[in-house]
């Protein structure tokens, strides 16, 4: 697979910030993920080619980090924290609600392809727990009602 010109250009521009092209690997994977929603094996190979990093090595790196996606995702990605602070403030109930309302399972995608759900470790919103990220937006102080109201804004 060839990376799109836009993706390749963005990677090349990021590359200039680093003394060593390899340092640009994580940022490059982000660029791909932003464009495609996930990182396909062919994209890993292409990124490796661009940065002179062997494909297997790219895969080893990409699979180490939990925020890289290795399968296509729904239109919106819900990253819901269930770590201790969120847990004691009721995050588990929220997981049930998402399942009931959208048919979402952790690491799954709703049947309509609208949402994907990933359970997160602490996302740094413990003072306003429970919390989630939808795409790149923080939503905090969630409860059984406002979580649905919030998500309804994402079509």
């Amino acid at each position: 697979m060839k990376l799109s010109d836009k993706v390749a250009a963005e990677i090349n521009s990021i590359k200039s910030r680093y003394q060593d092209p390899r340092s640009c690997l994580l940022p490059s994977l982000y660029v791909v993920q932003k464009a495609d929603g996930w990182i396909a094996p062919e994209a890993m190979a292409a990124v490796g080619e661009l940065l002179n990093v062997p494909g297997a090595t790219v895969k080893g790196v990409a699979t180490f980090y939990s925020m890289f996606r290795h399968k296509p995702m729904g239109r919106h990605l819900i990253q819901l924290c269930t770590n201790v602070a969120c847990l004691v403030m009721g995050a588990e109930e929220l997981v049930d609600i998402l399942k009931g309302k959208y048919g979402l399972e952790p690491n799954g995608t709703s049947p309509d392809g609208r949402f994907s759900l990933v359970i997160m470790e602490c996302i740094g919103a413990c003072g306003t727990a429970p919390a989630m990220l939808v795409d790149t937006d923080f939503h905090e102080n969630l409860n059984e009602k406002n979580i649905i109201d919030t998500l309804e804004n994402y079509k």
Partner: peptide, 18 residues
């Protein structure tokens, strides 16, 4: 050759070619 790598982390780590 860098033909293989450790993939994933934790106890789910294993060795794999590309």
């Amino acid at each position: 050759a860098s033909a293989i790598s450790m993939v994933n982390r934790t106890s789910k780590t294993f060795v794999e070619p590309f």
